[in-house]
Nucleic acid binder design. Structure first.
Length: 562
RNA sequence: AGGGGCGUCGCCAAGCGGUAAGGCAACGGGCUUUGGACCCGUCAUUCGCAGGUUCGAAUCCUGCCGCCCCUGCCA
C-alpha cells in the first residue's frame, strides 16, 4: 500500500534531479543516491519543513536511493524529546518512509570530537580565548579584512591541552572556543576562522551531562552527512555561503564528501511560516495553539482535515528552483478539493436554517429517500434521508425579491429539494418586529418523487435541506485564510490577520447520518468539505471544521453585481 | 560597498542556439437532481533592460537595472 507521499502527483523536471541524474550517470558516489532531512527538534514542523522533507525524500525515491531522517540536535539550549516525537508523527502522517535510517547528530559527538582533534593536530584549528564582542569586531566587515586572533598561532600541543580542558568542563562558558584556522581576509565572511565548538555547561536532552562542548552547525553538519554516507545534501538557499566551509572541512579531513545543493524555500501567499511569527500567534492567542486548523503546521493541517495526499500533491506540483517563490494559496486549496471530490461522501447540512413548511404534505408522514453518497463514484453507496412536512433550508436559498440570475427559492418559483421533490413557494411569514423571514410555505408536486420533473419541465435551482424532526444540531466552524493579504509581512503582520478566519455557527442542522461519521471528511452539499473536530466534537455536542469551501460561482456573480 | 545567488504570463514553472510546455488563477461557453465536479475555448509576437555574435538568441558574449542571502560562541 503506497503512502500519501508515495501516491502524490509526480512532477516534471527540476535542476536538482538533473544534477543527481548526471552524477548517477557518470558513476559519482558509486552510482548511489543518499539524501536526508535534518530537522532540529526545537519546534513543530510546518509546511516549509514538509516541503524540504519531500524534496529530499523524492530524490532518493526516484533514484532508488536511501533516505535518512536525522535529528540535527547539536544545541542543547533549544531541543527537546517531545519535538522529536511530534516531528516523527508529522512525517509519518505524510507517509515519508525512512526505514531503519533514523539518526541523531548528537550520537556522533565522539566522532566529531575525534575529527576536531585531527584538525588541531594538522595545525588547522586553535583554541581562541577572545571574548565574543572582540571576536566579532575583529572579524572585520564585508569590505575590510578581519584581524587575526592573538591565539591563532598556538602550537597543536597547547591547543590539544586547552581543547581537552574545554571538553572536561575546566573552562567556563564564553571563555574559549575552538576555531578553524582558515583566512581572516576571506571575502566570504563564513571563512574568517569560523567557530567549531562553544562551551555550554548544559545537559543535552539525549546525551545528558556527557558534554561541556557542543559543535556549531557548519562543523557538525558536513560531518553528519559524511558519516552517514549521504551523497546529495539538499538544503535551502541561505546556506549557499556556507557551502565553501562545508567543502573545506571535509577536504581537510579527507573524508567522504557529499555534494551540497541549495534550493529555494517554500513561501505561500496569505501564510507565514517563520518560527518567530508562529510563536507570536500562539503566545498572543491569535490562534488556538499549534494545532489550530488555521496554522500552517502539519498539526494544523491534520486537525483541519486536509488529506496528507493533498498536501503532498501540492508540494510536488510547485517544483523546485532557486528563484524566490511565493506560491498562491489557491493552488493548495485546489489540491485539497481535488482529492476530496473523489473520496468524500456527500451529505446535507443546513448551516443557517430557515423553516420550510410543505402545506400539502400530510402531517405526520415520513418518507425515506435514497441518496447517493458520491455521484462521482457509485461504489461509495447510498444512504437513507428522511423527508417530512417541516424542513429546514439554507437562509440564503430564499429571497423575497430575487436578484437577476438567482436560481433559488422565491415567491411563486419552483425549485428542487435534492433527492426529494419539486416545491413551489406560495407564501412566507415575516417577523413583525425585525422584518426577518420566519418561515416559508410551499406546495410540493407528488409526481416529482425523487426530484425528477414528471413532464420534463426545467427546474433550474436545487437546494439541500434537512427534515426538522430528523436532524441533529451542531456547531460548524468556518475557516478562511489566516491572513487577509497576500504578503502578511508587508506592513504590520498582526493587522494583516483576517478577522473572519474563523466564524463559529451554532444551531446548524445536520442530516442525522453525521452524528456518527467519525472524523472522515465529508462534503456538505453545495457548501464545502467538513470534518468533525477531533478535539472538541463529542456525541450530542458535534463540532465540525470546514476544510475548504466549494467553488462558489454565485458568490462571484453577486460580487460583480455590486 | 565585498562575497554568494536570483530575474520566462497575475502566481508557480518547462525551456539547455532552431523560432515560448504545463498547472493554478482569470475570462467565455457546454453539461449538470451540488451555481460543485466534468468538458470545450481564450489567456507571453515575447523571456528584467540595452547592446553585440549568429542565417537564426529566452538560450552565447558585454554592460546596466532590480530583488534576496552573508559580519551568532543559532540552524
Amino acid at each position: 500500500m503506497a503512502s500519501p507521499a508515495d501516491r502524490a502527483t509526480t512532477r516534471v523536471s527540476n535542476f536538482i534531479r538533473e544534477i543527481v541524474s548526471e552524477d548517477v550517470a557518470k558513476g559519482a558516489f558509486g552510482g548511489q543516491v543518499v539524501t536526508r532531512f535534518p530537522p532540529e527538534p526545537n519546534g513543530y514542523l510546518h509546511l516549509g519543513h514538509a516541503y524540504a522533507a519531500r524534496v529530499s525524500y523524492e530524490v532518493a525515491r526516484e533514484f532508488g536511493g536511501r533516505f535518512h531522517l536525522r535529528f540535527d540536535d547539536t544545541n542543547p539550549l533549544t531541543e527537546e524529546q517531545r519535538y522529536v516525537e511530534s516531528q516523527i508523527a508529522a512525517l509519518e502522517w505524510m507517509g515519508i518512509d525512512w526505514g531503519d535510517n533514523l539518526f541523531f547528530a548528537s550520537d556522533y559527538f565522539p566522532k566529531l570530537h575525534a575529527y576536531a582533534v585531527q584538525l588541531i593536530e594538522q595545525g588547522q584549528a586553535y583554541v581562541c580565548q577572545l571574548n565574543q564582542d572582540v571576536m566579532r569586531q575583529q572579524r572585520g566587515t564585508a569590505t575590510t579584512p578581519g584581524i587575526p586572533s592573538p591565539y591563532r598561532d598556538r602550537s597543536p600541543e597547547e591547543n590539544l591541552e586547552l581543547f581537552e580542558r574545554m571538553k572536561n568542563g575546566d573552562i567556563a562558558p564564553g571563555e574559549a572556543v575552538l576555531r578553524a584556522k582558515i583566512d581572516m581576509a576571506a571575502a566570504n565572511l563564513v571563512m574568517r576562522d569560523p567557530v567549531m565548538y562553544r562551551i555550554l555547561h548544559v545537559p543535552h536532552y539525549r546525551q545528558g551531562n556527557d558534554w561541556c562542548i557542543y559543535p556549531i552547525y557548519d562543523w557538525a553538519h558536513c560531518l553528519e552527512d559524511s558519516i552517514e554516507g549521504v551523497t546529495h545534501s539538499l538544503c535551502s538557499l541561505e546556506f549557499e555561503n556556507n557551502r565553501a566551509l562545508y567543502d573545506w572541512y571535509l577536504d581537510q579531513l579527507g573524508v567522504h564528501h557529499p555534494r551540497q545543493i541549495e534550493f529555494s524555500r517554500l513561501n505561500v501567499s496569505h501564510m507565514v511560516t517563520s518560527k518567530r511569527r508562529l510563536i507570536q500567534l500562539v503566545q498572543e492567542k491569535r490562534v488556538d495553539g499549534w494545532d489550530d486548523p488555521r496554522m500552517p503546521t502539519v498539526l494544523g493541517f491534520r486537525r483541519r482535515g486536509v488529506p496528507a495526499e493533498a498536501m503532498c500533491d501540492f508540494l510536488s506540483l510547485i517544483s523546485v528552483s532557486k528563484a524566490p517563490t511565493a506560491v498562491d494559496i489557491s493552488l493548495l486549496e485546489y489540491c485539497v478539493r481535488q482529492r476530496l471530490n473523489s473520496t468524500a461522501n456527500r451529505v446535507m447540512a443546513v448551516l443557517r436554517p430557515l423553516k420550510v413548511i410543505i402545506d400539502n404534505y400530510p402531517e405526520g408522514q415520513v418518507e425515506w429517500f435514497e441518496a447517493d453518497n458520491n455521484p462521482e463514484s457509485p461504489e461509495q453507496g447510498v444512504r437513507k434521508v428522511a423527508f417530512s412536512r417541516e424542513l429546514y433550508i439554507e437562509e440564503e436559498d430564499f429571497r423575497i425579491d430575487p436578484p437577476p440570475k438567482y436560481f433559488r427559492l422565491s415567491p411563486g418559483v419552483e425549485i428542487r429539494l435534492k433527492h426529494a421533490y419539486l416545491v413551489t413557494c406560495e407564501s412566507y411569514v415575516l417577523d413583525e418586529a425585525t422584518g426577518r423571514v420566519l418561515e416559508v410555505h410551499c406546495r410540493y408536486d407528488p409526481e416529482s418523487r425523487g426530484g425528477a420533473a414528471p413532464d420534463g419541465r426545467k427546474v433550474k435551482g436545487t437546494s439541500h435541506w434537512v427534515s426538522a424532526a430528523h436532524c441533529v444540531d451542531a456547531t460548524v466552524r468556518l475557516y478562511d485564510r489566516l491572513f487577509a493579504v497576500e504578503d502578511p509581512e508587508d506592513g504590520d503582520f498582526i493587522e494583516n490577520l483576517n478577522s473572519e478566519s474563523r466564524v463559529d455557527l451554532g444551531g446548524c442542522k445536520l442530516e442525522s447520518y453525521l452524528a456518527e461519521v467519525g472524523t472522515e471528511v465529508v462534503q456538505f452539499l453545495r457548501q464545502g468539505y467538513f470534518a468533525a473536530d477531533r478535539v472538541d466534537s463529542k456525541p450530542g455536542e458535534l463540532v465540525f471544521n470546514q476544510v475548504v469551501s466549494l467553488k462558489d460561482s454565485w458568490a462571484k456573480i453577486e460580487r460583480r453585481a455590486r
